[in-house]
Simulated assay, not measured.
Amino acid sequence: MLMAHANHHWTVADAKARLSELIESARREGPQTITKNGRSTAVLVSVEEWERKTTRSGSLAEFLLNSPLRGADLDIERSQDDAREIDL
């Protein structure tokens, strides 16, 4: 049986030596952080987690319609300053 790695953090050396266990831990326990020289450098996630995080749900219009600020009485003033000049 595979043993869970402490705190979901793996050194590069451990990740290379125990890749199958790292992959299984990502699948069962969630994202696994890989460190190099004591610093977090990468995160391994399962395909299911990746798809859940990267799949777009809804449109921008739906997002705006569902905003908690919809209907709020916001007083937004537009700047009356002249446009700035830029060199093209």
Rank of each mutant, 00 (worst) to 15 (best):
R28F: 04
R28Q: 10
R28P: 02
R28S: 08
E29L: 02
E29P: 00
P31F: 05
P31Q: 00
P31G: 05
P31T: 01
Q32P: 03
Q32E: 03
Q32R: 05
Q32I: 01
Q32G: 00
T33F: 11
T35F: 14
T35N: 14
N37Y: 15
G38N: 09
R39G: 04
R39K: 01
S40G: 11
S40Y: 12
S40L: 07
T41P: 01
T41I: 10
T41K: 06
A42H: 07
A42P: 03
A42Q: 04
A42I: 07
L44M: 09
L44N: 07
V45F: 03
V45A: 05
S46R: 01
S46E: 00
S46A: 03
V47W: 10
V47N: 05
E48S: 10
E48D: 14
E49K: 05
E49P: 06
E49D: 04
E49W: 03
E49N: 05
E49A: 02
E49H: 03
W50L: 13
E51P: 06
R52F: 12
R52N: 11
R52M: 13
K53N: 12
K53I: 05
T54M: 08
T55D: 05
T55E: 08
T55C: 08
R56G: 12
R56T: 13
G58P: 07
S59D: 10
L60P: 11
L60Q: 15
A61Q: 13
A61I: 14
A61D: 15
A61P: 09
A61H: 14
E62V: 01
E62L: 01
F63D: 09
F63K: 13
F63M: 12
F63V: 12
